[in-house]
Simulated assay, not measured.
Amino acid sequence: MGTAMLACPYCGQGVEAPTTESARVGGVRRRLKQEYRLTRNTCPECGHEYDVRRA
């Protein structure tokens, strides 16, 4: 398991998102379809959900 440093698309707060070692992160989006989503996370600052896009 690895981590990627990302910015919340709602508030801009820097957050760490868990990823697999072989996964390539393609960015962060507010909503993605299941086939494009790597993980779904919740921002600890503003509480909104965001999706990490698979590259």
Rank of each mutant, 00 (worst) to 15 (best):
M1V: 06
M1P: 01
G2H: 06
G2Y: 08
T3E: 11
A4I: 11
M5A: 12
L6T: 06
L6F: 13
L6V: 15
A7P: 07
A7E: 15
A7G: 07
A7L: 04
P9A: 12
Y10P: 00
Y10M: 00
C11M: 00
C11D: 01
G12Q: 02
G12N: 03
Q13D: 08
Q13C: 09
G14I: 07
G14Y: 05
V15P: 14
A17T: 09
A17P: 13
A17V: 15
P18V: 00
P18E: 07
P18K: 00
T19D: 01
T20F: 05
T20H: 10
T20M: 03
T20Q: 08
E21A: 09
E21K: 03
A23P: 02
R24C: 07
V25C: 04
V25N: 04
V25G: 02
V25L: 07
V25W: 02
G26K: 09
V28M: 12
V28I: 15
R29V: 06
R30H: 05
R30S: 01
R30M: 04
R30T: 03
K33G: 14
K33V: 10
K33A: 14
Q34T: 13
Q34E: 15
Q34H: 11
Q34N: 11
E35G: 04
E35S: 13
E35M: 04
Y36A: 13
Y36V: 05
Y36M: 09
Y36K: 10
R37E: 08
R37I: 03
L38Q: 03
L38G: 02
L38S: 01
T39Y: 02
T39R: 12
R40V: 09
N41M: 14
T42A: 15
C43I: 06
C43D: 05
C43A: 06
P44E: 02
P44N: 09
P44K: 07
E45C: 13
E45A: 15
C46E: 00
G47N: 10
G47P: 12
G47W: 12
G47H: 10
Y50P: 08
Y50M: 08
D51G: 01
V52K: 01
V52L: 13
R53I: 03
R54T: 06
R54A: 06
R54C: 06
A55W: 04
